[in-house]
Nucleic acid binder design. Structure first.
Lengths: 254, 254
DNA sequence: ATTTCAATATTTGTCAAGCAAATTAACGCA
DNA sequence: TGCGTTAATTTGCTTGACAAATATTGAAAT
C-alpha cells in the first residue's frame, strides 16, 4: 500500500516568523506605532535571509498590521488596525464569498433584515439629531429626478449607514456595514431594473418619521415593509433572468 | 515654506501585482482550484523578479486566497476561501481590536444581545431537532459538577453556537460566531469569578424550552434575562477590579 | 510481467550580495 | 540665519544560486 499524501505540518519559516510577530502584537509586547527592528536586524535575529523576513512582513502588511516607510526615520511600524481598515477588509472578503456563491442572495437579504431590526431598536433609543438630519438630507437628495441610478444607490447606502450610526454602538456598526456594502452590488442589479424610486423613498420616510417619533412599532413595520418589497424585486429579477436564459436557449440550442 | 510629507501615491510593485491577481479572482477570471503560472513564469509575465512575485503571493496567502505546494504537480492554486477560514480570520481580527480597546466590553455585550435576539427570531421558525438536541446535550454537560471553568465556558459557547445554527442562515452564523468568540475571553474573565453556573444553566434551559415550544415571547424574555445577568456580573467585576487597584495604590503609592 | 527502488525533473522555499529609490539629517556656503 | 547639497539610512527590487519536497520515469530484481 502506498501512503496517501499527508499535508506537511511544518510551516514555512516565513509564516512562522509572521505568526510570531503577530502574537507579539496581539499579546501587547508590541504596541501601536512601535518600531520593529530593521529588516536586516530582524534577519540577523531570526537567523534567516532578508527576503524571508520580507515575506513574513508582507503577510502582516496584507492584514494591515504593519506599515513601512523608507528613509532614515523609516522602518516598519506596528499599526493599530482602525475599524475602517478592518471594515474594508471584511467587506471585500464577504463580497468575494458572495461572488463565489457561498452566500445566497436571499440569505443575505434575510440577515440584513433581521440585523436592521436589531439596529432600529437601539437607534430608537439612542438616535440624535445628527443622524436623523443625515437621513433627511439623503431622502431629499433621492427625490432629485436627475440623479443617476448609481448616485441613487449610493445615497441609499448612506441612508442606511446613518441608521446604523444612530445605534451609537461600534460593534453593531462594524457588523452592519459589511452586510450593507456586500449587499449593495446585488441591490444595484435589482434596483436599476425593477425597483421604483418613489416606493423606496416612501419607505425611507416612514423609517425616518418613526425614528423621529421614537416609535418602535412603526419603525419595525417600516423595516418589514422594506423587506417585503426587496423580496418582490428579487423574485421579479429572477423571473426576468429565467426568461432571458430560456430565450437564449431557444435561440441557440445546444 | 517646506512641503509637508505627502504619502506616496505610488504603491509598491508587489502590492499592485497582488491586487491585480486578487481582482482576477474576484471577477471570476481565476476560479477556485485554478493553477497560477509558476513563480518564474509570473516573474517573466509581470517583468519583475521572483522574490517580488513571492511577496505579492504571500500577501494573498495571508488572506487565504491561494495555497502553494512544492513538487512537479505543485504550484500555486486559487483557494476558494471557506466560511471557516474567514470566520477564523475575522475572529482573530476582532479579538485584536478588543484587546486594543477599540470596542468597549459593554458595547460588545449589547451588540451580542441584540444580535442574539435577531437570531432567536429566525431560530424559532427554523430550528430542527438537531440543534435543540445539541443544546440539550450541552445543558446536560454543564450540570456536571466536575467540569472545570474552562470546560464549562467552552460548553456555553457551543450552546450559543447551536442556537445560531438553528437560524439556518449562513450570514447570520458568520456574523454571530465572531461576536460569540470575541466575547468569550471577556466572559471567561467574569465567569470564573462572579457567575453562578446554576443561574446560567437555568437561563439556558429557559431558552431551550422556548425554542422547543417555538414561543417567541418567552424566548425573547429569556435572552433579555441573560443580558441583565451579564450586565450585573460585569459591574461586579469592574467593582472588584476597582477595589483591587485601589488596594494596590495604597500599598505602594507613587 | 510485476514490483520495488533509485535517479530525475519540476516547483516552491531560502539564501546571498548588491543596486535603486525614498527620505531625513547634517553640512557647507552665501 | 537661511538655503541648497551631500551623505547616510532604510525599504524596494534584482540576479543568481542552492535546498527541499514531490511526482514521474526507468532500471533492476523477483
Amino acid at each position: 500500500m502506498t501512503l496517501k499524501y499527508e499535508p506537511v505540518v511544518t510551516q514555512s519559516v516565513a509564516k512562522q516568523i509572521s505568526e510570531q510577530i503577530r502574537r507579539s502584537i496581539t499579546n501587547g509586547s508590541l504596541k501601536a506605532d512601535d518600531k520593529l527592528p530593521t529588516e536586516a536586524e530582524l534577519a540577523r535575529q531570526f537567523n534567516v535571509s532578508r527576503p524571508t523576513i520580507r515575506e513574513a512582513l508582507k503577510r502582516l502588511a496584507a492584514k494591515s498590521l504593519i506599515r513601512s516607510r523608507r528613509g532614515p526615520t523609516g522602518g516598519t511600524f506596528v499599526r493599530a488596525p482602525s475599524m475602517e481598515d478592518m471594515s474594508q477588509d471584511l467587506i471585500s472578503s464577504v463580497a468575494l464569498m458572495v461572488s463565489l456563491g457561498v452566500f445566497d442572495l436571499t440569505e443575505i437579504a434575510e440577515a440584513r433584515h433581521e440585523l436592521e431590526l436589531a439596529c432600529i431598536r437601539l437607534a430608537i433609543k439612542r438616535r440624535t439629531g445628527a443622524e436623523t438630519n443625515r437621513m433627511a438630507a439623503e431622502i431629499n437628495l433621492q427625490k432629485d429626478q436627475s440623479l443617476t441610478d448609481e448616485e441613487f444607490c449610493a445615497s441609499d447606502v448612506r441612508f442606511h449607514r446613518a441608521l446604523v450610526d444612530a445605534t451609537h454602538n461600534p460593534v453593531m456598526q462594524f457588523q452592519m456595514f459589511t452586510v450593507i456594502e456586500a449587499l449593495q452590488p446585488v441591490e444595484n442589479m435589482v434596483i436599476f431594473r425593477f425597483r421604483q424610486r418613489k416606493k423606496i423613498i416612501e419607505q425611507h420616510e416612514k423609517i425616518l418619521h418613526a425614528l423621529l417619533a421614537r416609535d418602535l412599532a412603526r419603525a419595525e413595520k417600516a423595516i418589514d415593509e422594506q423587506m417585503v418589497y426587496l423580496r418582490e424585486s428579487f423574485s421579479q429579477a429572477q423571473e426576468w433572468r429565467r426568461k432571458r436564459d430560456e430565450a437564449k436557449r431557444t435561440a441557440s440550442p445546444t
